[in-house]
Computed example of a mutant assay.
Amino acid sequence: MAVQTENGGAQTTTTTSKQSSSPKKVIIDTDPGIDDAMAIFFALKSPELDVIALTTIFGNVQTTTATVNALHLLEFAGREDIPVSEGSKTSLRGAVKDRIADFVHGKDGLGNTYPTLSDRKPIDTLAPDYLIQKVNEFPGEITIVALGPLTNLAKAVEMDPTFAKKVGQIVILGGAFQVNGNVNPAAEANIYGDPEAADIVFTCGADILVVGINITHQVYWTGKDLEDLGNSSSKFGKYLYKASHFYAKYHREAYDIDAIYLHDPATMVAAVDPSLMTYATGAVRVQQEGICRGLTLFNNTNKVWHDPTDWCGIPPVKVAVSVDSDRVASLLKERLTAP
């Protein structure tokens, strides 16, 4: 159920969660990534979700490494039954991805832990085709949780005009709404990775819920929380504690904090229990050129514009504007430390 209130002329929505009789079918589009590993493990330990596949994309690592890491994480979790579909190796218009966040996640994407990798291979079907296939197989039932650049989803939108209406929901980690970005003052990393793709997805008309770094910078684990993961009886907690040493070092150097931001896992929580955040509804566009390339612009006013603009007729999306950060961080810790 959605309860709407007025907030300075803008519409704010509080979503209350209702337990479904069956878990959501979820495809995770991911670029693992230490916090991707957190989000994937959390999803696998959440009875509210039925993870039916991972699709991979560049971002924290190159796409081929993302695929290798996705296969490894599923094997570690004992979920070799879940297929992995490899995604695009370049941005939507063909540019080679030139910014990989190895300084955040390590050369291997997993904190330079270099774990033993899986012998399993990805399926033959590429990610955009696989997304289309599953959305057509289960119309209205698939939730896609997008944790990296939106290239695979934009390709699916362009390839299948019915995709946006058939997907159940797209939950996106991306954007910086009324705060500075984390690549530069204008842009958040996932949107910066493929701004053209992001603009296509945000305006495609699907049911979209966006969690930006204005939210995820409020959700964190402290050094003590990480110690608790390492001291837990959970293999997931111990794994993430080890992988997070590199990630924590980056946060100390970049933000001067003894904590780590929980970007991807907080976004996965929104798929599990959206009531832990509130949302404003409106149109989102993405700046595609210049020094503000990758900037997410959000129009959630009720103003009627006098002249026709590129904002007219844009389908609305839901953007997270507040979060119960303590409950989100606690839920993540609780499930990832449980034996």
Rank of each mutant, 00 (worst) to 15 (best):
Glu6Met: 01
Gln11Lys: 15
Thr16Met: 11
Ile28Tyr: 02
Glu48Ser: 13
Leu54Gly: 08
Thr56Asn: 02
Ile57Lys: 07
Val68Asp: 11
Ala70Pro: 01
Phe76Ser: 01
Ala77Gly: 06
Gly78Thr: 03
Arg93Ser: 13
Val96Asp: 12
Gly109Phe: 08
Pro115Arg: 05
Asp124Trp: 03
Asp124Ile: 09
Thr125Ser: 02
Ala127Ile: 05
Leu131Gln: 04
Lys134Arg: 14
Asn136Cys: 02
Glu141Pro: 07
Ile142Met: 05
Ala146Val: 09
Gly148Thr: 15
Leu153Ala: 02
Lys155Cys: 10
Lys155Val: 05
Lys155Trp: 09
Met159Ile: 01
Met159Arg: 14
Val167Leu: 02
Val167Ser: 07
Leu173Arg: 13
Gly181Asn: 04
Ala186Gln: 13
Asp194Lys: 08
Pro195Lys: 08
Pro195Ala: 09
Asp199Leu: 03
Val201Asp: 02
Phe202Asn: 08
Thr203Gln: 13
Val210Gly: 03
Ile213Tyr: 05
Asn214Cys: 12
Thr216Val: 08
His217Gln: 15
His217Tyr: 12
Gln218Met: 14
Gln218Leu: 14
Val219Leu: 13
Asp225Arg: 03
Asn231Thr: 10
Ser232His: 01
Ser233His: 10
Lys235Met: 08
Ala243Met: 15
Phe246Cys: 08
Ala248Leu: 15
Ala248Lys: 11
Ala248Phe: 15
His251Trp: 02
Glu253Ala: 08
Ala259Trp: 06
Ile260Gly: 04
Tyr261Cys: 05
Pro265Phe: 07
Pro265Leu: 02
Thr267Val: 13
Ser275Lys: 08
Thr278His: 09
Arg285Asp: 01
Ile291Asp: 14
Leu297Arg: 12
Asn299Cys: 05
Asn300Thr: 08
Lys303Gln: 13
Asp310Ser: 14
Lys318Ile: 00
Ala320His: 08
Asp324Ser: 13
Ser325Lys: 15
Leu331Lys: 03
Arg335Ile: 01
Pro339Trp: 01
